[in-house]
Design a protein around this nucleic acid. Structure first.
Ligand SMILES: [Mg+2]
Length: 237
DNA sequence: GCGACAG
DNA sequence: ATCTTGTCGC
């Protein structure tokens, strides 16, 4: 799995926004006719340590049992600060590096952050999916753009996330009575399928298990792991 | 001009 | 995002 070099990463904020506007038109909002995923990857980036170093992580999980198949990480010093709307320019490089280390190719990638639910309809999930040409789903705990109404309390319920009369994602009730998460198309998937896939990765917590595992791996709490190494660990509650 | 603002 | 068990409130 190799990321295309569609642009440079050494950009200012104005250039970054322009790149997003240009690439947004390339995002594919439909699923392949055959979409029965057997492997999913979750990705995330750690906060920087005291030296400014951050770690990107990619964890491949088998479906439907969600056993860990592979864990890869990559360290880097983010050049761009966190700016709402420009998250992908900070987090993508080390995350892509971790994904490129995978020897297992997942059927899709769950990203910690939005996809189309973004001011220019090009969140980090779109960015990663477009560069790798792989289906991706954006998954966030908070809204960046849009609003929703009428979400019932039952597990599995969802309501459209709407911005300016456009459906940009879904508020999804992963657990009954718990605040929803926000799911949006990243690349090469439709919204209904994206929601299905997220629900298929349900865990004891709000975020899908592959993302939670990537979060732990990025934090150094889950060891790197090659496919086949029959480890069962999965520390932490 | 002001407020809102993924991780 | 980060830190940290027990505790408070619905
Ligand atoms: Mg994150």
């Amino acid at each position: 799995m190799k990321a295309r070099a569609l642009h440079t990463w050494d950009v200012n904020t104005a250039e970054a926004r322009e790149i997003q506007r240009r690439l947004a038109s390339e995002v594919v909002r439909l699923s392949p006719l055959d979409s029965d995923p057997k492997l999913v990857a979750g990705v995330d980036l750690s906060p920087p340590d005291q030296d400014g170093r951050a770690r990107g992580a990619a964890v491949v999980v088998r479906l439907p049992d969600m056993g860990i198949v592979e864990v890869r990480t990559a360290e880097a010093t983010p050049k761009m600060p966190y700016i709402p709307g420009l998250l992908s320019f900070r987090e993508s490089p080390p995350i892509l590096a971790a994904l490129e280390k995978l020897t297992t190719i997942p059927d899709f990638v769950l990203v910690d952050g939005h996809g189309l639910a973004h001011p220019r309809r090009f969140g980090i999930a779109c960015h990663i999916g477009l560069l790798l040409e792989i289906p991706t789903v954006g998954c966030a705990k908070n809204i960046l753009r849009g609003r929703y109404e009428g979400l019932v309390a039952e597990q599995g319920a969802w309501a459209p996330l709407i911005d300016k009369d456009e459906v940009i994602g879904a508020a999804v009730r992963v657990k009954t009575g718990v605040s929803p998460i926000f799911v949006s198309i990243g690349h090469m998937v439709d919204l209904e399928t994206a929601v299905r896939w997220v629900l298929a990765c349900r865990d004891r917590i709000r975020l899908p298990k592959p993302i939670a595992l990537a979060h732990n791996a990025a934090a150094g709490k889950l060891p790197e792991m090659a496919p086949g190494s029959q480890e069962q660990l999965e520390l932490l509650t």
